[in-house]
Every structure is written in structure tokens, then in C-alpha cells.
Write a protein that binds this DNA or RNA. Structure first.
Lengths: 167, 167
DNA sequence: TTAAACTTTCAAAAATAAATGAAACTTTAG
DNA sequence: CTAAAGTTTCATTTATTTTTGAAAGTTTAA
């Protein structure tokens, strides 16, 4: 396999993986492209490589910057903007985890707390509902807090975590 | 908030969370419904509660059973089939993790290994590609193995994991 | 058997999500 | 200033995913 083919395969795979996890394909592809580029890339180049429109490129770059995993860069004497990806994988994972927690887990937790707090516990059915949703709340909260711990762990948290688990 | 409202809110929220994570809404909703039901539910009842077609119910129940998080049940003297969800959350998380690993992570790892093994490392660009994809391979492999460890941990792995991380 | 009760399948329709591209907007060099 | 270079926005179009529903398939009681 030659470089160009490998590069394409990687970008496509990353894109597919993204959509399976609820991240749009182009966003994941742009990120993939930036991850493996050794220098900042212009929007023009991204459009060209991925064969996408200017609007699409612009919106997804914006989204990636909102997630904090892609940065804008300015080159001296250049009018255009260039983009680079967060390349440190520990940092990348932490940022993605943080963002998904904020956008999806936290709001879900709020709802879980609400619905598990209903008053009436007359029937067995209602008791079971309260019991199950309470357990779910505890579980999700614990899992979410674990993600926060990852951040505190800092540098190479994954490696350290695996070590802890092993022993 | 009364029971019926809370129940509905929970099912809707679980459905929305599902689609954000690449699991189709109905599948997540059926699962939610079964999670909070204290007894096995017939397909007819699921269709009625969620206002969905027979085909939709059938296909998504099948998918949930393929994931190993919903079971068929037969009641004595009843022709119809009934369904129940895996209600143990540790078990649920492990099964979901296992399934996603098998379906998505493992195939992605295979590709990562492939593309990080290209021969030519002439240019700095190619060197960076090989370096970055290799690192990604290692990272994803480590994360995936961690999921396997969860299984070995068995009962209440999440609680124990949090304890380990804390200290 | 067979017919009623129930389930599955899958082509077509509907709903949803993503992409396009042209117009509006912003920035900067001259 | 202002015009050229570049970027963003968003209504419309396109692509993808999900849902429907009717036909085919299966099971079982009589």
C-alpha cells in the first residue's frame, strides 16, 4: 500500500467511525486529515482533499474548534487561515469526553434526577420505576465523574489507569 | 410530576441520548421501556406505548436481542412472546461495550494497523503519518483492552474502578 | 390438515441529517 | 476609502437513515 492510498483509507475509516458514534462524517474526516498532517492546512486544501463545499468545510471546522480539538493558525504574510488538530491523544480523549459530558450526559442526568424523584410510589410498577431510574442516575453519575478524574490524572492517564486496573 | 409523565420523559430522553451515540431512537426507546417495566412486555404493548409500527418494533427488538441486552420470554398458556431487558447496569454496560468493540473498534484497529505499516517513509509527511497512526493504534488498542478488563472485574466493576482511581 | 394468531421481512415512503452554493459579511493591502 | 481576498451563513437540495405496512412466513390449537 502506498502513502496516498493509506492516507485515504485512514480518513475514510475515521469518518465512518465518527458517524457510528454520532459525529458527522465530514467533521470526523477533517479531523482525521488534520491529525495526520505535519503542517497547518488551509480551508482550500481541505475542500480539495475531501471534495467538499466551502460551506461544509467552514461549518465543520467551526464545530471542531468549538470542541477544542482543532485550532486556527495564522502564517506571517499569509492572508488565509490555517488549521491544525490537537495531536496529543490523551488530550484529545479528555477534550472529547469533557465535551460529550457537557452536551449530553449532564442534561440526561438532570432528567434522570427529575423523573426518579416523583412522589407517588403506590403501585409495584411505580416503585420499580423509581428504583430503576435512581440506580441509573447513580450509575451514570459515577461514570461521568470517572471522566472528570481522567482530567486530574493528567498526562498519560490511560496508561496509568491500565496499570492500576492490572494489579 | 406524575408517573405517566415521568415515564414518558425517561423514554424520550433515553431515545435522544441513543441517537446522539449512534443507536437508533426507537431501539433506545424500546430498551428504556423494558428497563423500567417490572414485568415482561408484549410486542403489541410496545407498539401501543411508543406508537410505532409492527415492523419497526420487530426489527428493533431483534437488534436489541442481538446486542444481548433484551431477552425473549414465554408465558405459560400464552401464545405471544414477551420481552424483558437486562436490568443489571454493570452487566448492561459490559455488554454494550463488548458489542461496540466487536462491531466498530476491532475493525477500525485492523485498518489502523494496516495503514500504519506502509513501507515508504521518505518524506517528513509520510514519517508523520506513520508515527501518528501508530500512536493512534496503540492508544485505541489500550482503551479497547481496558474494556475487556471491565468484564474480568465482574460485579460492580465501575464502583471498584472509581475506588482505585480515587486513591 | 388447516385456519387463526402471531412474527418477520423488505420494498417503498417518510423523516432526518448533512451538504451545497450563492449572497452577505469581514478583513486588509494599497 | 475601496476593491480584492477570504470567511460565514443559511435557505434549498441531496443523501442517509428510519419507519411503515402489506405480504410472506411460522407456529400451534383444534
Amino acid at each position: 500500500m502506498e502513502f496516498k492510498e493509506a492516507k485515504n483509507k485512514f480518513v475514510q475509516t475515521w469518518g465512518a467511525l465518527g458517524s457510528q458514534w454520532g459525529i458527522n462524517k465530514t467533521m470526523a474526516q477533517i479531523h482525521a486529515l488534520l491529525m495526520i498532517s505535519n503542517q497547518a492546512v488551509s480551508m482550500e486544501d481541505i475542500m480539495e482533499e475531501l471534495q467538499i463545499s466551502r460551506g461544509n468545510a467552514s461549518m465543520n471546522l467551526r464545530a471542531l474548534m468549538d470542541w477544542g480539538i482543532v485550532y486556527k493558525e495564522y502564517k506571517a504574510g499569509e492572508r488565509r487561515e490555517f488549521f491544525t488538530a490537537e495531536k496529543d491523544l490523551d488530550e484529545l480523549a479528555v477534550k472529547i469526553a469533557r465535551e460529550r459530558s457537557k452536551r449530553e450526559i449532564k442534561p440526561a442526568l438532570k432528567i434522570l434526577k427529575e423523573v426518579s424523584s416523583i412522589e407517588s410510589k403506590d403501585s409495584a410498577e411505580e416503585k420499580h420505576f423509581v428504583d430503576q431510574t435512581s440506580k441509573l442516575y447513580d450509575f451514570v453519575l459515577k461514570a461521568d465523574n470517572m471522566l472528570d478524574k481522567m482530567t486530574e490524572f493528567n498526562e498519560n492517564w490511560l496508561g496509568r489507569l491500565v496499570l492500576k486496573i492490572m494489579k
